[in-house]
């Protein structure tokens, strides 16, 4: 019988390791393509972040029903995520938008502090999406939580200096975002580095498009980033964060109009779990999840993929 040729890649590069929160959670470190034990001795599981909102206004009922009422208090909600086994919490501060309540920055900061203290987990902080509104919030949050390295999400090419400054001033982590483009992701990492952000304070978000919403683009962009990083492109060796919650915006995932599509609770869960599986198999080091079922499935699958079950 002919021997199978050795197909393991021996890469010269590796993904950076970034310590999160109190330093007890680390993202990145891979030395080979995801989950291939024959070339990647680092068997770190991608970290899974459970998503929590500061208001339920606009949050899908389908997802809300999965949290037993505990979603009504963001701290309880975060604790539930911890019980499920999440490694991190992603706090979305959207009520800071005046049209959604206009919560003052100090209140948002206090909330994040409470969640951080209660869960002791690393926290991803994301804003309402309007940088002018978000910056004061990020500033307040960054100053309120000093005992845990937060992940501030996210800075893009057009407006990254403000958020980067907040991160630098308080030794937090800034997420550089680029829209489905390897070169842009690299450019973003360069811009942040040039601005003075330390590599151990950076994550990259290449935009994880959900299943059926352009997942293919993301999947390939992420594979390319990972390959280039392993081949030695240091400016792409920043650990990757993929937000998979976009799955819940897909009509096919959540629609309850056509009964032949099956129970939307299960369908949405699968939708997100598959999106996340594609994310981790193409190189995600951190994934943000909305549904507890999907997160739980993903945790199991990741553990199994890295040979820990």
């Amino acid at each position: 019988m002919t021997d199978i040729p050795d197909v393991a890649d021996r890469f010269s590069g590796a993904i950076d390791e970034v310590a999160l929160g109190k330093g007890d959670y680390v993202a990145g470190g891979a030395k080979g393509m995801p989950f291939l034990s024959f070339e990647n001795p680092v068997k770190r599981r991608p970290l899974i972040a459970g998503e929590v909102f500061d208001t339920l206004d606009g949050y899908p009922q389908l997802a809300a029903d999965m949290f037993d009422g505990r979603q009504k208090d963001p701290v309880e909600w975060a604790l539930m995520w911890k019980e499920i086994g999440a490694d991190m919490i992603c706090v979305r501060l959207v009520s800071t938008d005046p049209s959604r309540g206009g919560t003052p920055p100090e209140e948002s900061a206090a909330l994040v502090k409470r969640i951080s203290d209660a869960t002791k987990l690393p926290i991803i902080v994301s804003g309402c999406g309007v940088m002018d509104l978000d910056i004061p919030v990020f500033t307040a949050v960054a100053e309120a939580v000093r005992d845990s390295r937060l992940i501030l999400s996210k800075a893009d090419e057009d407006d990254y200096k403000r958020l980067a400054s907040v991160a630098i001033a308080n030794d937090h982590i800034v997420v550089g975002f680029a829209n489905l483009d390897v070169n842009l992701s690299k450019q973003m990492n360069i811009l942040l580095t040039d601005f003075g952000v330390d590599r151990r304070n950076m994550l990259t978000d290449p935009l994880m498009a959900a299943l059926g919403m352009g997942l293919d683009y993301s999947y390939s962009v992420q594979e390319r980033i990972r390959i280039a990083a392993l081949m030695g492109d240091s400016m792409l060796q920043i650990p990757m964060l993929c937000d998979c919650t976009g799955a819940w915006d897909v009509g096919d995932a959540v629609s309850d109009e056509d009964p032949s599509l099956g129970d939307p609770r299960f369908r949405a869960t699968w939708w997100e779990a598959i999106t996340a599986l594609a994310a981790v198999i193409s190189g995600a080091d951190i994934v943000v999840m909305r549904g507890p079922g999907a997160a739980d499935m993903l945790m199991g699958y990741c553990d199994e993929l890295r040979g820990e079950i």
Binding site: T139, K161, R162
Partner: peptide, 9 residues
């Protein structure tokens, strides 16, 4: 003056 002083605003 705050962060605008260092974020190049």
């Amino acid at each position: 003056l705050g962060l605008p002083f260092v974020d190049e605003t």
